[in-house]
Nucleic acid binder design. Sequence first.
DNA 1: ATAGTTCTTTGACTTTAGTCAAAGGTCCGA
DNA 2: TCGGACCTTTGACTAAAGTCAAAGAACTAT
Lengths: 290, 290
Amino acid sequence: MDHVTAFRRFNRYFTRRIGVLDDHYLGQDRPLGEARLLFEIGDGASLRELRSRLGLDAGYLSRMAKALQAQGLARLSAHPRDNRLRMIELTPAGRLEVTEQDRRAGAAAAGLLEGLGEAQRAELTRAMATAQRLLRLAGITVTLVDGAAPDARACLDAYAADIDARFPEGFDKDDLVRPREVSGDAGAFFVAYEEHRPVGCGALRRLEPGVGEIRHVWVHPDARRLGLARRLLDALEQEASARHFTVVRLDTHAALTEAQAMYRACGYTDIPAYDDNVYASHWFEKRLDG
Amino acid sequence: MDHVTAFRRFNRYFTRRIGVLDDHYLGQDRPLGEARLLFEIGDGASLRELRSRLGLDAGYLSRMAKALQAQGLARLSAHPRDNRLRMIELTPAGRLEVTEQDRRAGAAAAGLLEGLGEAQRAELTRAMATAQRLLRLAGITVTLVDGAAPDARACLDAYAADIDARFPEGFDKDDLVRPREVSGDAGAFFVAYEEHRPVGCGALRRLEPGVGEIRHVWVHPDARRLGLARRLLDALEQEASARHFTVVRLDTHAALTEAQAMYRACGYTDIPAYDDNVYASHWFEKRLDG
DNA sequence: ATAGTTCTTTGACTTTAGTCAAAGGTCCGA
DNA sequence: TCGGACCTTTGACTAAAGTCAAAGAACTAT
């Protein structure tokens, strides 16, 4: 049986068997739309945000929000800085309702797991975690963007903040690549997106003829341990090949031991220092044949 | 993180991410109810069957069936032997529509898996198979029923047909336990149900004071490899303990090698023949302490 | 300051989904 | 062969979900 068939079979089984359950317990005595909205408000959100998250019509959402307010479950207010936007947040009663929903759904889930022994439950949890990890990874797309694009800069800022906290000596944002170093002929910049949010990046720049350098491979904390860094690395290497680089190099900081392990696992070998990067303690390179 | 939380997290992620996809692609330009019905008709079914499978109101279903017929997608006819029932089957146009739905959903699934490498796809398939197996097992309930109940007899009939095909010498239905041997003080009979369908059984009867015999442990072919036989065995042993039996015995046929392996794995030890069952080649017993 | 854009609200719908009860034909067991 | 049980159809509803367009307030860039 091929993977697509297996995937669809699971999909069908799961939505029929479990998905239904969740919806059923979520709704109870309230229209499902309202219940979902209530749940999605969480710690407050703008109507605009909810509209795009839930994919609802503006008019429809407006009315539902009003209905929740009329029931004393939510409160609408103006956005502090943009008066076009409306913020919605839960009242204590609304919060209570959400936790009650949660309790019911939890009880239903517990009832469902009751038929399994402890070892089997652990096995199920493990299998689900694996499936979820791979599904998330499958949903992430790695795309080439301009080095000056807002998403690229946002990733680099996050990257800089991240390593600034991890390097004992800190990290100076001026040491990031310049947009022009990773645009056009000079290099390339990739951003990984999960549901339209940037969750990782990686840069490639020309070091000398035939030699590229990979820099700033970074993955958002929420998206770690999925195997995304490898995918970024793959994309960067493919780009390097397309540019007829025969070698890619990179350096890493002593503090980033996982990164070093990953580079070695991906076929990179230790080489002597090829630059005087003050943050670097290890230098690697990899021959590309493709 | 406990199993219930992990379970619900996966549930939420999966329904949001994947479940939606299926419904969306399934429906396309047709109401979801009709699309589901169309799909569920398959190679023809009675309205009654569809009603219980989909849990729909009789009137609602009747109207939807008529709508499908009006669109030229299905054909209604009388049941050949029971004129109260109506049969519904797909027309060629309906069949085309279903395969088209199927193609689209398959393409969507394939697109989703595109981001993964072959090894990762295999890992995902494996994880999903594990999860599905355990979820199915969790959904099966093992209940005590009267030995003369129709479900009990249906299981025994299926069991008899099953082993009749597997034993070289065949199997005579008269050698099954009698209802009264497994009812009341004399013994017990368990049936395993999956979504209200009997999918397995097991009998316990008193052999002599303090000693019980387990017989006819059977699992429906569709429900094998889930770990259900062990659950039936557990239920039978618990029942035996409750009846203050200190020992349970059982015999098996030479052809049933998997069964023998399972009994050994569950703590049964080989003993000399305790009866002259013509079908038996191995005899086992297990001490119960509880 | 002005034109264009963004966001929400409101009114006026339509479609889908689902329920309930009455009625009529059919089957089955006594 | 008669009464009760079964199955489907039909009429008459309701509630939920969703769509579309107009209008008004507020922001943004030029």
